[in-house]
Design a binder for these strands. Structure first.
Lengths: 261, 261
DNA sequence: GCTGTTATACTAACATACCAGTTTAACCAA
DNA sequence: TTGGTTAAACTGGTATGTTAGTATAACAGC
């Protein structure tokens, strides 16, 4: 899987207080609503709750708020200069996303990583992407290949320019692009949701830049397999590709055990 | 709005006060918490919000509250004899589950079926169950077979006794059982969530009892395939099996177009 | 110093009041 | 009858007060 966005994320928390907020730019792909959250698009009006929710979510996903951090409705409300009510609503949303641990009459805290949840997200994403490959093999043509290739070239350019966050965005988009090209737009929301759950953790990984070359190579092989419409090969590559997550998880778990629960 | 929020739902509210609650019985399998809702198990205390949420969810999933029915925070609060606050929280949860359509300054309504959402749930469930079959083939043994067979026998008994709801519960458990036996407990929550989204619709189907024999037969074939550890055969059966949903959806869509959005 | 108790300072859940939009229907004019 | 205007009846979002339960620190007894 993917690589990380660290470094940058630490820088962001400083920017957040200014008016220029690069974090929103860099993490635009993270900020995109997930599968259960995209329901709020009905709400054409942007409420105070929405704003608080998004701000806090970005802080948590970027690790500006670390697992275990205490969050008080009153304190956050005061910080935002609003009443407790919208904060309470935002807390509830974050709680349902698994980002906050809310218990009555007890301090609300940022949830740590859960091995269980990570394994679940990995399994679901794997299952989905495997099926996507099958579907894609049925409809893949030169046009699809060109489109994917264009993204891949950008990935290489991003690596050469050492803009790792840009690469991460492109990697994210690459997988979604194949969904789209394969006619599996149904899978997109859920895959995004799965990545949100695991990518927060990758921020802490240090040796991610050592693996990007392999990632690029696998992306290349994937396109080749799709061009040949070789389903077996494509699914094999996906299994290997997503298997990379395991070592990252193991690394973080041993290095930052305090962030797990 | 379209449909009455009265009728059956009013009848049910009478039952709710009694000790025998048939609706809860019939839809017990539906009531089981979904993947995003099971997070609330942290809350060891059962809050008023929880109660309202579960009651309304059951009403919606059992179609006691039909798509399009208007729901007012104030009205529900008065009916439950509580303040608007817990109702509001419950509404928000239901909104995030895609069961309610909440818009500021506008009446909240029960969401109708969405072809998009149904297709999405179908795709995700298919992808997951396919991967489950692969995993299960690797670990399947006589003990697993016996366990699954026991459930299958109960299914047959339920059919003979003409207790269709009992059969439905067992069918639900059958698929989850294979997840568990195959070591894919990670998939359970999401599969349950997917079924919740589609099974509300199946309540309206009239000819499901005509298909149960085929369903039983496929379940039988599935166990046979797993016993032979024949991955290709197992996945083929799953594709056919889940494909049944399509005709049901088509039937309901033509017969109850007013429930779709 | 250590332990059990108690008082105090928290917490989120819940209740109530108000506000700003939306919907609806009554109404008047053409 | 029809089309446009307006006012009243709603809606959910927000603010604030109250309550019950929890954690913590001060403290009394040993």
């Amino acid at each position: 899987m993917s690589m990380p966005e660290l470094g940058i994320s630490v820088l962001m928390s400083q920017f957040r207080c200014n008016e220029v907020i690069p974090s929103k730019q860099h993490f635009l792909w993270l900020s995109t609503v997930g599968p259960m959250e995209n329901l709020k698009i009905d709400r054409e009006r942007r409420t105070t709750t929405d704003q608080v929710f998004e701000d806090l979510r970005d802080d948590i996903l970027s690790l500006a708020l670390l697992p275990g951090a205490k969050m008080s409705e009153a304190e956050v409300a005061a910080r935002f200069g609003i009443s407790r009510q919208p904060v309470r609503d935002a807390f509830n949303r974050l709680g349902h996303l698994g980002l906050l641990k809310i218990r009555p009459q007890r301090a609300t805290v940022v949830r740590g990583f859960s091995i269980e949840k990570i394994a679940e997200a990995r399994f679901i994403r794997l299952a989905l992407e495997l099926e996507v490959m099958k579907q894609a093999c049925n409809v893949w043509d030169q046009k699809c290949s060109d489109s994917a290739m264009r993204n891949l070239e950008e990935q290489k350019a991003a690596i050469d320019a050492e803009t790792l966050d840009r690469f991460h965005t492109l990697d994210f988009q690459f997988h979604l692009l194949i969904c789209e090209l394969g006619g599996c737009h149904h899978a997109i929301d859920t895959i995004m949701s799965c990545r949100q759950k695991t990518d927060r953790l990758c921020v802490l990984s240090f040796n991610r830049d050592k693996e990007v070359d392999s990632v690029i190579e696998e992306h290349h092989q994937l396109i080749a397999a799709l061009n040949e419409r070789d389903e077996a090969k494509a699914t094999d590559i996906i299994r290997t590709h997503l298997g990379r997550l395991d070592s990252v998880v193991a690394e973080i778990q041993s290095k930052h055990a305090e962030y797990f629960e």
